[in-house]
Amino acid sequence: MMSVDALQVKAYAKINITLDVLHKRADGYHEVSMIMQAIDLHDTVSLKKQNGDITVEANIPALACDDSNLACRAARLVKENCHIAEGVHIVLDKQIPLAAGLAGGSSNAAAVLKGMNQLWQLGLSQAELEALGASLGSDIPFCLRGGTMLATGRGEILTPLPAMPCCYVVLAKPGICVSTARVYGRYRSAEQVVHPDTQGVIAGLERQDLPAVTQRLCNVLESVTVTEYPLIDELKQSMKRYGVMNSLMSGSGPTVFGLTPDLERANYVADRLGSQFKDKADIRVAKTLARVE
């Protein structure tokens, strides 16, 4: 394989088709069961070998570029575990909104793991990359694989599912910040009445039945986040009123997404949301991805 000194990796966002919290684990994490889906909204992560240590820069001034950044931590993990003497300069071209429930930070870390594996020709297997990723964050193994996956454990145990029928995703990220740890900490399973019909969603995926999948969108963490931030429910209801098949909050929030089979409807919904929630939410249109590069 020809040696390279620099490369770029696309870091794709995700949405949660379902998210169920089963119980609190002995290690302090929560046992979850969720169906995760990659979408084509992505950051671009550039890596270049350099003398010295790890440096990170980003196109968003508000984003920390020190060791608190998952991309930096991923690079340091590979450098130390694989005994790499050189440094690497990482440039993050961010398009995924920050703190959105779309795995932007995790996808950047996954891109760094893949990129460094290629740059230094380390020969790390997919399983080895996922193990490194899981030590940094529960969403990183999914971001390394992409597609449509059932994620269990604390989110790091992945089971491939039939690809989501191709559809368009209207995203609305309100201008609020949500702490994932706080949302999980405030979740009360005993008070949760509705849980995802995971097997029903999987059956719909097997039949490539988009209506069967969309009618079963369910995220138990809405019981916490929507209660605290009514704007999230306003966005959900508006999306439905403008014609998406169904709408849901992704992850611990605050981003809301709606699904529709055609681009024309997605653009119409996005335009209406943009007019209604001007200055209150960042509106995007994306598409589901059957597989990630």
Rank of each mutant, 00 (worst) to 15 (best):
Q8V: 12
Y12H: 07
N16E: 05
I17S: 00
I17A: 00
L19M: 05
H23K: 10
V32L: 12
S33F: 00
S33H: 02
S33I: 04
M36L: 14
A38N: 06
I39C: 05
I39F: 02
D43K: 05
V45G: 07
S46E: 13
Q50W: 05
N51M: 08
G52Q: 10
D53L: 12
E57L: 07
E57D: 15
A58E: 06
S68N: 07
A75F: 00
V78G: 00
K79G: 04
H83D: 11
H89A: 15
I90P: 01
V91A: 10
L98F: 03
G101Q: 08
A103R: 04
G104Y: 01
N108A: 03
K114D: 06
G115V: 04
N117V: 10
Q118T: 13
L124N: 08
E128I: 03
E128T: 10
G133Y: 04
L136S: 02
G137P: 08
F142V: 07
C143F: 00
G147W: 01
E156M: 09
L158V: 07
L158I: 09
M164I: 08
C166E: 15
C167W: 00
C167P: 02
Y168Q: 12
V170K: 06
K173N: 13
I176Y: 09
S179M: 15
S189E: 14
A190G: 02
Q192A: 11
V193C: 06
V194G: 03
H195D: 05
R207V: 07
L210M: 06
P211D: 13
S223I: 02
V226S: 05
T227A: 14
L231W: 04
L235S: 06
L235P: 09
Q237R: 13
K240M: 11
M249R: 03
G251M: 04
P254T: 09
D262Q: 09
E264F: 10
E264S: 14
V269C: 09
R272W: 11
R272S: 15
G274H: 11
G274R: 14
Q276N: 14
A286H: 04
T288R: 14
A290L: 04
V292L: 12
